[in-house]
Design a protein around this nucleic acid. Structure first.
Lengths: 196, 196
DNA sequence: CTCAAGATGTATCGGCTCGATACATCGACG
DNA sequence: CGTCGATGTATCGAGCCGATACATCTTGAG
């Protein structure tokens, strides 16, 4: 059970460090700029995560040229190791069902540029069906408990349903785009050309 | 520090039990029907919460008429005590800054029918400014790091911003409605009537 | 009738995560 | 010169979740 169930943080950190080495404070700022609309990254989880990644040998401290340290305040810059890059690729290609939960999906999406087209499609579709399950479940539960709900509860339900439906539409567009791109990229069986 | 920082669950349970006594399993179903669009309630937090509320004397077990038990399977029905009702009212009227966080806002909103108009407005406005802070923070951080973002990241940002902006518009409508209702209800100082 | 499957129901454990907080240095500004 | 806010690393308590175990009731196919 040491694998990667809820370790979205690890993915987020490895993904960020893949671009450029960073220290904790800056890393947190980048993550919050990138994904702050969906979740917040806190020191209480970030620093333990860095320590864990360090212990696993997936990241390493990078010390600047000794002459430069003079006036610098103490900061610990981390960079990806070769193992870390491997691990990142693994996480990006394996992308299990946890990838389409609320907390994980955004992180996976943020690194789609490093993800294979096939996996991208799988994640988008998984996320979509996850949301549709939720819609079904809430709708049927709501239909059963239709006993006079007050106007506030109704408004909350309406807003919630609309938000989720909106995300489903967004996913539909993305999926269509992905499909179109992948069929253009490999037009092997386009004998029937302009179908659907 | 025993107070109610992150104890949204307690509020959700007390609020649900205010309507009608319930046992754990059914309580969870109701909560997930009511708020499943925003968060999921699990046994791992629900049962400890019930035990804690019981220990605090805010809820109590309600045993059915002994004659009815015969064929019934063992279930523990909880009801609000007088102290529980008091506590619920306290939580609904105090409604600190934690009430406009993501996890809490929906729960508070779901029980607006038991909340005073003044507090409703405070929560709605607090939530709105919380979201606007988030928009500002992400927007400026994004402007500073405008270094060539790939199309996926841009799309994610666009979708995220739009979602939050949409919720802000929703809040604006709700706030306007609340203000209208409260000014109709007490039209004492409408001498200047249609002012800003 | 029988037995398996699935809904109902209570309960716990390990582990992740968060908010608050503590401490220290640096730059800017009056 | 002092102090305020940003930068920076680090930890602690507490809450919460997913998975899981276990037991009973209902349903319905064979």
């Amino acid at each position: 059970m040491v694998s990667g169930q809820g370790r979205v943080l690890e993915l987020a950190v490895l993904g960020s460090l893949h671009e450029t080495p960073l220290h904790g404070y800056e890393l947190r700022k980048r993550l919050n700029a990138l994904l702050g609309m969906f979740r917040a990254f806190s020191y209480g989880s970030l620093y333990p995560c860095l320590r864990s990644l360090l212990a696993q040998g997936l990241i390493a401290e990078e010390q600047p040229a000794p002459s430069t340290i003079v006036g610098g305040r103490s900061k610990i810059v981390y960079k990806l190791t070769a193992e870390g890059k491997e691990r990142l690729q693994d996480m990006l290609t394996q992308a299990g069902p946890s990838a389409w939960e609320d907390e994980s999906f955004g992180v996976h999406f943020a690194f789609f540029r490093h993800t294979e087209a096939e996996v991208r499609l799988r994640i988008l579709e998984g996320r979509r069906s996850r949301l549709e399950e939720r819609l079904d479940s809430v709708r049927t539960a709501l239909a059963r408990t239709r006993e006079r709900l007050d106007s506030y509860t109704l408004e909350l339900q309406r807003h919630g349903l609309e938000s989720v439906e909106r995300e489903v539409r967004w996913l539909n567009e993305l999926i269509a785009t992905e499909r179109r791109a992948s069929s253009e990229e490999r037009p092997e069986r386009d004998t029937t050309s302009t179908d659907e």
